[in-house]
C-alpha cells in the first residue's frame, strides 16, 4: 500500500523503531483487509451466479460476505489512521500555533487512543465469550462466532497501538 508519511520525519532509536514496526504492521493488515474485501465481492458474485443463473440455494454466502467485509473494515482502520484518513474537524487546531496547537492535538489523540483502547478491550471480551461459550451464528450455515469477531479485536488493538505511534510521531 502507498503511504503518505516520509520516513525522513521518523525519529531514530526505540521510538523510531516502534513507529516503523507499527507502520509495517498496519500496512500488512491493510493487505489482509484488501484481500478480505475482494473475497467478499467475489463471494457475492458467486452467490448471484448460483442463485439466479443455476437456480440453486445459497446458504453460507451472505454471512461469509458480511463477516469478511466487516473484518476488512476493522483490519483496515490502523492503516487509515496512519495515512490520516479518519475525518476530523481541524479548523480550531489549525488556527492555533505553537504549544496550544500541540496540546490540542495531543488531547484529541488521547481521546482517540482512549476510545480505541476501550473498543479493543471490549472486543477481546466478546471473542473470549464467543470462544468459551461455543457460540455460533444460529443460521443454516451456523459457523462458530469467534472467528468473525477476532478481526475486530485484532484491528482495534492495532489501531490503539498505531495511535501510540501517531502520538510519538507528533511529539518529536
Amino acid at each position: 500500500m502507498e503511504h503518505s508519511h516520509t520516513d525522513a520525519t521518523t525519529p531514530g532509536g526505540l521510538v523510531g523503531g516502534y513507529i516503523r514496526l507499527m507502520d509495517r504492521l498496519s500496512r500488512a493488515t491493510a493487505y489482509l483487509a484488501a484481500a478480505l474485501f475482494i473475497a467478499g465481492v467475489v463471494v457475492v458474485c458467486q452467490m448471484v451466479f448460483v442463485r439466479y443463473i443455476l437456480g440453486m440455494s445459497t446458504s453460507w454466502q451472505t454471512e461469509f460476505t458480511v463477516f469478511s467485509v466487516t473484518a476488512a473494515m476493522l483490519l483496515g482502520s490502523p492503516y487509515v489512521l496512519m495515512t490520516g484518513g479518519h475525518v476530523a474537524v481541524t479548523v480550531l487546531p489549525d488556527s492555533l500555533s505553537g504549544l496550544p496547537r500541540r496540546l490540542m492535538r495531543l488531547a484529541a489523540s488521547l481521546v482517540g487512543f482512549g476510545f480505541c483502547a476501550a473498543l479493543a478491550y471490549a472486543s477481546w471480551v466478546y471473542v473470549a465469550e464467543a470462544w468459551h461459550g461455543g457460540w455460533t451464528t444460529g443460521t443454516v450455515w451456523n459457523p462458530p462466532l469467534w472467528p468473525a469477531v477476532l478481526p475486530m479485536a485484532v484491528g482495534s488493538t492495532l489501531l490503539t497501538l498505531q495511535y501510540v505511534a501517531e502520538i510519538m510521531r507528533g511529539e518529536v
Partner: peptide, 23 residues
C-alpha cells in the same frame, strides 16, 4: 420456487423439498 423461509430449520426442510432458498 425461490423461497424466503422464516428460520433455519424451515430453510433446511424447504430446501430438502426442492425449493431454492434466499435469506
Amino acid at each position: 420456487q425461490n423461497f424466503r423461509a422464516a428460520g433455519p430449520a424451515f430453510e433446511q426442510m424447504l430446501e430438502a423439498a426442492g425449493a431454492s432458498i434466499a435469506s
